[in-house]
């Protein structure tokens, strides 16, 4: 900690204390929800109404505005979960453990959305709901990893042990992340290659790119909101006997 300036260290120390985190979450929530809704509505208007139809895929391509951001989130949240899990494992920070496990259901939701919307896009464009190719299969494995994390955490009663087990599982599963990303280059597939996340200029027109990025940003805010809701529940469950929870209850019933 000697490299970190004093006020920043103090900020993180306070943030890691459960009652402070709980109160801060409550104060931030309206702002997070407002930003999320602004981004979501402008993204949807841009994607569904303002952007032109694709010259090959017609209007079916509009599924891209949820499919691609959801798929990005499925990878992003997994990395956040693994990093938070590692921090919890190394420094025994309770809040990091809670962020890790609270990320899992949100990540699973986005992975499910990526798979289902991909299927609904694949049917009219490829002529099939599903193919067992590398991209689709590795994304399905990601869903099972998320469900495995949730199941493992629920199966172990002692939540300290459960957090450790879950962090190790999440870290082992990180190998799947580059496989998903590069699967479209390494193996032949029906799935199209990267359009935005590549070294070259994105091969998408700006009128289609802007709503895509707005939706991606909206989903990032959604992740923070949904993860914090889960974290609040998790924190109360773990700290149900703590003094600050008792204070919270008596304040609410008064």
């Amino acid at each position: 900690m000697f490299l970190i300036p004093e006020p920043i260290g103090r900020f993180f120390h306070r943030l890691a204390s459960p009652p402070h985190f709980y109160a801060l979450t409550n104060r931030l929530m309206p702002w997070l929800v407002a930003l999320f809704l602004i981004l979501l509505i402008s993204g949807l208007v841009g994607g569904l109404y303002l952007a032109p139809a694709d010259y090959q895929q017609g209007d079916s391509y509009r599924i891209i505005y949820i499919h691609v951001p959801a798929a990005w989130m499925s990878l992003f949240i997994y990395m956040m979960m693994a990093i938070a899990g590692a921090i919890g494992l190394i420094w025994r920070i309770k809040l990091a453990e809670i962020v890790a496990i609270s990320s899992a259901p949100v990540g699973a939701a986005f992975t499910f959305i990526a798979l289902v919307t991909g299927s609904l896009w694949g049917k009219p464009m490829w002529g099939t709901w599903w193919v067992w190719d590398a991209r689709l299969t590795s994304e399905l494995i990601l869903l099972f990893l998320y469900l495995g994390v949730i199941g493992l955490y629920g199966a172990i009663d002692d939540k300290k042990t459960a957090s450790k087990a879950v962090a190790i599982l999440a870290l082992v599963g990180v190998v799947n992340i580059p496989i998903i990303h590069y699967s479209v280059e390494w193996w032949s597939t029906l799935h199209q290659g990267a359009t935005v996340t590549k070294m070259d200029k994105p091969s998408i027109h700006v009128s289609m790119l802007i709503p895509l990025l707005l939706m991606a940003l909206a989903f990032k805010f959604y992740y923070v909101i949904a993860m914090l809701q889960r974290a609040k529940l998790e924190l109360l469950q773990r700290e149900r006997t703590a003094q600050w929870v008792k204070k919270l209850i008596t304040e609410q019933t008064l």
């Binding site: 079916s60 599924i63 939701a109 499910f112 049917k123 009219p124 949904a226």
Partner: peptide, 27 residues
């Protein structure tokens, strides 16, 4: 939706329901 109404609106509908449930359930 240029004839793709079923696919586009089902995709958006499922996305909306799943995200809403994931946020509301813990609350």
């Amino acid at each position: 939706m240029g004839g793709y109404a079923f696919y586009v609106w089902t995709a958006y509908g499922i996305c909306f329901v799943v995200l809403l449930a994931t946020m509301i359930l813990p609350m």
